[in-house]
Nucleic acid binder design. Structure first.
Length: 299
DNA sequence: GCCCAGGATATCG
DNA sequence: CGATATCATGGG
């Protein structure tokens, strides 16, 4: 059954902070988390594998595959380990961010409080695009509801130990539907078009994570994303931050960021965009990390 | 009932 | 180019 694998953690890494983030919504449908473990389906070459991840006393992580009747082969284990390292951005050296943030007036309290947090990623480009689109101009609670309806309607699932675990729908599946179908899930007409449009681009092979990563720089990737209907600057930077892993991505228009800055600055009103740009200028190529830490002041 | 929400696009002046 | 209208629905 469960040959556990151990995943060594990097220097500045606190799994408790990651768990806090993973537990921020009780309506999350793509994994099941509690204060000390998280369980989800992970891609591993062939069929997705159910993995349960928990922290060990020495700080390392343990991953096991509880649903398998035979021990997973080496290839599967390697895929699982790679997925986890990518999910939690474990191969990034955060010393630059810590040095910068600890002497920044706005960021210092947040990095003291959430030290060891890393940007929790969305490895699947289609999922990242859809989650961004779904989250446009609505409150986060409703965005989670939309995602759940979408996943439970079009995704694949595995039942284990009395629970159902879901994978995010493949673009090929969504490319084939009539956008009007999503109206029934309470998508707006536009969001339905955006999601199906992105699915079709990916199904046609015009858009892919590898293709975006092959572009020469972050500016080129941002341009390629904002050229897609429904992907504006906010969604593009959100995807750059959580999927393509640009630590300098910065969703300037993000309402959550605005409210977090209001808290961090002790203001009555959200700071104007020009002030936010000035505050963020010293954050340089760590703006995504600064944003992710600031978000934790709210959720 | 009201205001806000992890925005984007189309249209105007 | 910058400002404005429109979308469209739930959560608090």
């Amino acid at each position: 059954m469960a040959a556990a694998i151990t995943i060594e953690t990097p220097g500045v890494f606190d799994f408790a902070q990651i768990f806090d983030y993973l537990n921020r919504s009780a309506n999350e449908c793509l994994y099941e988390a509690d204060a000390a473990s998280v369980t989800r389906l992970m891609p591993a070459g062939g069929a997705p594998v159910l993995v349960r991840l928990s922290a060990r006393a020495d700080g390392a992580l343990t991953a096991e595959c509880p649903a398998l009747t035979e021990p997973p082969d080496d290839e599967t284990l390697r895929a699982v380990a790679a997925y986890i390292r990518e999910w939690f951005d474990m191969d990034r050296d955060l010393s630059g961010f810590l040095a910068l943030a600890s002497r920044d007036e706005v960021l210092a309290p947040a990095v003291r409080r959430f030290r060891g947090l890393r940007i929790v990623g969305i490895a699947d480009l289609f999922e990242a695009l859809c989650w961004g689109i779904m989250g446009q101009q609505i409150n986060l609670a409703f965005a989670y509801t939309l995602k759940r309806r979408f996943v439970e309607r079009y995704g694949d699932s595995v039942r284990w130990n009395g629970r159902v675990y879901w994978t995010f729908p493949a673009p090929e599946r969504i490319a084939a539907i009539d956008p009007a179908e999503l109206r029934g899930l309470q998508f707006t007409g536009r969001k339905a078009e955006y999601v199906v449009g992105a699915a079709r681009l990916m199904a046609e092979g015009v858009l892919s994570k590898a293709g975006l990563l092959a572009l020469p720089d972050w500016t080129a990737r941002e341009k390629a994303l904002t050229a897609i209907r429904g992907i504006g600057p906010w969604t593009a930077h959100y995807v750059l931050m959580r999927c393509l892993r640009n630590p300098g991505a910065f969703p300037l228009e993000d309402v959550g960021l605005h409210n977090a800055l209001k808290v961090a600055l002790g203001r009555e009103e959200k700071p104007p965009l020009a002030e936010i740009q000035a505050l963020a200028a010293p954050w340089g190529e760590w703006k995504a990390y600064a944003t992710f830490y600031l978000w934790r002041l709210l959720y």
